[in-house]
Design a protein around this nucleic acid. Structure first.
Length: 268
DNA sequence: CCCACTAGTCGGATTACATCA
DNA sequence: GGTGATGTAATCCGACTAGTG
C-alpha cells in the first residue's frame, strides 16, 4: 500500500557530526577526525525518539541517549556512568598507590616547587591560580594546540612544567568538544521534534485523503480523468515552511478532475 | 623506494583530588 | 563534620605521524 504503512513512521535518520576542531592547529599535526555519528531513531509513530551516539569506525562503543531523559542532561556524567563498558581496560590500569599520610597542603604555593615530589607518592592536585588559568585560556583562544616551542614558552611564563601545560590543553580541548557535542545534541533533539510534528501532520493528511477518497469514489475512478493541481494550492506551494528544510509541503494540495462538476475553489 | 624503529603528540577513558552545597 | 555532586589535573592507553637508519 505505501503511504499508509507504518514504515512511513519508521524514521531512521543518521546525521554525521564533523567534530573536527574548528580552529585547526597550525603546526604539523595532521588533522585526525574521529568519526562520530548520531543516529536518530523513532521506532513508531508517537514514540519517544532516541539518539544513539557512537563511533562509526572501530565500533568500540555506542551510547544510547534517551532524548527525553538526557536533555538537562549531563552527557559527561552519562559517559561516566557507562564506565562499565570500558572498564575492561581500567582494571589492569589500576595501580596500588601508597597513600602518603603526608599532611600539609601546600596552598597553591607548591606549584612545581619541588620537582622530585611528583611520581614518588600519590599525585597531588595542583590548583592553577586565576592568573595562570586566564593566561592559559587566552592562549587557548589563539590556538587550541601548542607547538613544542609555544608550550615551552608558556610553561616558562606560567612557571609550570611543559607537561602540565600540555595536559591542560588536552583537557581543555576535551571539554570544548564535550560542550560542542552537547550543543549538537540539543540541535538534533529540536530537529527530531520538528520531524515528529511533520510526521503527525502528514499522517493526518493521509487520513483526510483516505476519507476523501471513500467519500468520492466516483470522481476518482472516472475513466480518462486526469488529476490536476488546484491553482490556488499550486501557487501556495513552497511559500509556507521556508525555514523548515524537512517540510515536504506547506499544506495539502487538492486535486480535482477535469469535469464540469468539480469546482477547484469549492474543493479548497 | 620500502621497511622497521623511535619519539612525540593526540584523543578518549578513567582516576583521584579539591571544592562546594 | 560527613556526604554527594561537580570540576578538573593527571594518568593510562592506543593510534597516528614524522624522522631516521
Amino acid at each position: 500500500m505505501g503511504i499508509g504503512d507504518d514504515d512511513a513512521c519508521n524514521t531512521g535518520l543518521v546525521l554525521g557530526l564533523g567534530l573536527s576542531s574548528p580552529s585547526k592547529p597550525d603546526h604539523n599535526q595532521t588533522p585526525r577526525k574521529i568519526p562520530l555519528f548520531l543516529k536518530l531513531e523513532s521506532t513508531s509513530f508517537g514514540d519517544e525518539p532516541s539518539l544513539t551516539l557512537g563511533l562509526s569506525a572501530g565500533g568500540a562503543a555506542t551510547h544510547k541517549v534517551d532524548v527525553k531523559a538526557a536533555v538537562g542532561g549531563d552527557l559527561y556524567r552519562q559517559g561516566s556512568s557507562l564506565s562499565a563498558v570500558y572498564s575492561f581496560s581500567s582494571g589492569k590500569v589500576k595501580r596500588e598507590r601508597e597513600v602518603s599520610s603526608e599532611v600539609e597542603k601546600n596552598n597553591n604555593s607548591s606549584r612545581i616547587s619541588d620537582e622530585d615530589e611528583e611520581g614518588v607518592n600519590g599525585r597531588k592536585k595542583l590548583r592553577l591560580s586565576k592568573k595562570q588559568s586566564a593566561l592559559l585560556e587566552e592562549s587557548f583562544k589563539q590556538h587550541s594546540t601548542l607547538s613544542p616551542k609555544q608550550k615551552q614558552a608558556l610553561a616558562r611564563q606560567l612557571n609550570l612544567k611543559p607537561r602540565q601545560v600540555e595536559v591542560w590543553f588536552q583537557n581543555r580541548r576535551a571539554r570544548t568538544k564535550l560542550k560542542q557535542t552537547e550543543v549538537d545534541c540539543e540541535l538534533l533533539k529540536k530537529c527530531c521534534e520538528t520531524l515528529r510534528d511533520e510526521n503527525r501532520r502528514l499522517q493526518k493528511e493521509i487520513q483526510e485523503l483516505k476519507a476523501l477518497k471513500l467519500a468520492q469514489p466516483f470522481y476518482m475512478h472516472m475513466q480518462g480523468a486526469t488529476l490536476t493541481v488546484c491553482p490556488s494550492c499550486e501557487t501556495s506551494r513552497g511559500v509556507g515552511d521556508a525555514n523548515n528544510p524537512y517540510s515536504m509541503a506547506s499544506k495539502p494540495r487538492h486535486f480535482y478532475n477535469n469535469n464540469p462538476f468539480s469546482n477547484p475553489s469549492a474543493a479548497c
